[in-house]
Amino acid sequence: MVNKLKRRWQLAKVRAGDGSPLRDYHLWQLFARSVFFLELADHDGISHSYAVDVRHLADAKTRQQHDNGEGKAPAALYRNGVQVSRSNVPTAFPVPGGVIEVATTAFGLKRMHFVSEAGVERALRPHPRSQEGLRARLGQRYPRASAVIGAAAVVILVVALAVNLLHGAEVLTHSPIIAEKVGTFTSPIHLSTWANTTLITAGALAALERATRLRHNRFLDTLTS
């Protein structure tokens, strides 16, 4: 029931596209834009090329303008190079045989998947010059190095999560009301300013690395961002 309501809400946000062409991808858009592709056949068996264009720097004003039917949308769906739908994120674009789910985080994408009517899902293909495309190419050419980078990102996020939880518990239990009932807790880890800055920077890079691979864990990636 919850999934059905969520899907209905996402589909309700989708607006008709303006018919504009899909713009070329430029290197200077590396951290501001993501483009993914998918080939799908319609009900007549005719194959079409779909593309999803996500603008990561769309601010609250832009999103509000889109809700009012104006301005550019943070995400847009193109069929054969022509915009057919647009929406705020998270969203689900209807396509033949299912939907394309799109969701973002502060560091990039967490969902860019085609989900069939039978519930089978698969990730879309990233633009080769995008950060997701470059990361995918690294994984194909150097699979061992890619695996090490991925594992390191998880370790960094786990460490950052542990430090954040310990610090949060210390702050929470030093509240007079809570301290009176359960006592106080002092974190065994206290980082210096430079160490804390280093951990925050490493955590952001780790989260970015996972976003380029569409890896997202609701607990790990959310609490450490």
Rank of each mutant, 00 (worst) to 15 (best):
S85G: 06
D67H: 14
F93P: 08
A41C: 10
S87A: 10
D44T: 07
V52Y: 06
K61G: 15
V82F: 01
N88H: 09
L38G: 02
D44I: 05
G98M: 03
V54K: 09
P94T: 03
V99E: 04
D53Q: 09
I46V: 11
H66S: 07
Y50T: 00
A41T: 05
E101M: 12
I100Y: 05
V89E: 13
L38A: 08
F93M: 04
H48Q: 02
H43P: 08
Q83L: 00
E101G: 11
F93N: 05
N68I: 04
A60W: 14
N88Q: 10
K72D: 15
V95W: 06
G97A: 00
E101K: 14
S49G: 03
Q64N: 13
I46E: 03
V89F: 06
S85A: 07
S49C: 05
N88M: 12
V95C: 02
H56P: 15
N68Q: 11
P74F: 14
E39K: 05
F93Q: 03
T62I: 11
Q65S: 14
V89R: 07
T91R: 08
S47Y: 01
H66F: 15
N80R: 02
L57V: 15
S49I: 00
A60T: 14
G71R: 06
L38Q: 07
V52A: 11
Y78V: 00
S49N: 02
G98N: 08
E70L: 13
F37E: 02
G69T: 04
L40K: 02
T62E: 15
Q65V: 08
Q83E: 02
K61Y: 11
H66I: 11
L40C: 04
V82Y: 01
Q64L: 14
V54C: 13
I46D: 02
A75E: 12
